[in-house]
């Protein structure tokens, strides 16, 4: 099975709007899902340029974009993907 790739945007906009909290996922995700996921902090995913900064911070779980991302919403998306992958 391919690893699920999680990208956390640490660009200026996302960081100011709350991505600082998302950094916790760098430790949480491997603890929770082992080697099924790969987490990476990206400089800027360039998602904020097309819409309002009100939707930041952004994260990506494979090709799914999560706006107003929180630790919980990212974990939920990873869980959903893992479950779908098993079916």
């Amino acid at each position: 099975m391919n690893k699920i790739k999680v990208k956390l945007c640490m660009g200026t906009t996302c960081f100011v709007m709350g991505a600082s909290e998302l950094q916790e996922l760098v430790d949480i995700l491997p603890e929770k899902f082992g080697d099924k996921v790969e987490v990476q902090c990206a400089t800027c995913l360039d998602l904020c340029s097309s819409s309002s900064e009100g939707q930041a911070p952004y994260a990506m779980v494979d090709y799914t974009v999560i706006s107003k991302a929180t630790v919980e919403s990212v974990i939920n998306e990873v869980e959903r993907k893992l479950k779908n992958g098993q079916e």
């Binding site: 640490m10 660009g11 200026t12 906009t13 100011v16 709007m17 400089t43 800027c44």
Partner: peptide, 9 residues
């Protein structure tokens, strides 16, 4: 910084 679109890193 956001308003000025400054990418800090």
């Amino acid at each position: 910084f956001v308003a000025y679109k400054i990418e800090l890193s």
